[in-house]
Design a protein around this nucleic acid. Structure first.
Length: 229
DNA sequence: GCGACAG
DNA sequence: ATCTTGTCGC
């Protein structure tokens, strides 16, 4: 049901599945208007990589207030292989999303959307199997090239591969390395950078991804506690 | 054959 | 991703 088979070491089969799933990716705006909630997803590792820890943070789209946050830990099943990141991280991210108090209107994921060799980065993969609108927000390029970027907040230039635009290089914060933003599912090429900037305050990463990043990589073993005072 | 290569 | 303190720069 998850469209993610147990890892059997078959890289070729995984790539073929990506080409198949990529056909279902919708790159046009088809998300709730106005947006009520946004979620940020990211993954971290514990025990020398033996444990995969996924973090999901749900925010109010207008106030950026944190509504809920969840952490899910599972044994790591697969090694990191460039281009196959989603097979390694989605098994932990999906239950983390399910654990949230509400299903978000939009999901921002640490990694690429369609800015991928077979146009199915983790954000796109996540989108097609959950049906939720998604955007990929990565910190480095996997594939493609772009022209130099102005050091102005919000400046963005197309990321291209094989003659087609697959995403954008976005300067979310002056003086900082740019982000690589690409549509995941049900979000248009033009809307992707606008949405990321809408949720970016004074940090390089937009709030959804920044908070999930913090949760996923914290050194302590705590689980979030429902604060009583 | 030789590099590049999300996290 | 992760191992890790101080340090450089706006």
């Amino acid at each position: 049901m998850l469209a993610i088979p147990e890892w059997n070491g078959d890289v070729q089969a995984a790539r073929e599945l990506q080409r198949e799933l990529a056909k279902g990716v919708i790159v046009r705006d088809d998300f709730p208007r106005p947006l009520r909630t946004v979620a940020g997803l990211d993954v971290g590792f514990e025990k020398d990589g033996a444990i995969t820890r996924a973090a999901a943070v749900l925010l109010d789209a207008d106030t950026l207030e944190v509504i809920d946050q969840q952490i899910v830990r599972i044994p790591t099943r697969m090694p990191y292989i460039p281009g196959l990141l989603s097979f390694r991280e989605l098994p932990a991210l999906l239950p983390a999303l399910e654990a949230l108090a509400r299903t978000p209107d939009l999901v921002m994921i640490d990694g690429h959307g369609i800015a991928h060799p077979r146009r199915l980065g983790i954000a796109a993969h996540f989108g097609v199997i959950t049906g939720l609108p998604s955007i990929g927000v990565a910190k480095s390029v996997l594939v493609g090239a772009a022209r130099p970027l102005h050091d102005t907040r919000g400046a963005h230039t197309p990321l291209r591969d094989k003659g087609e635009q697959i995403g954008w290089i976005l300067r979310s914060k002056p003086g900082c390395l740019p982000l690589i933003v690409s549509p995941g599912h049900r979000v248009s090429m033009a809307a992707a950078p606008e949405l990321v900037m809408r949720f970016a305050t004074h940090y390089r990463l937009p709030e959804p991804t920044r908070l999930a990043d913090r949760l996923a990589s914290r050194r302590d073993e705590r689980r979030h506690r429902p604060e009583a005072g």
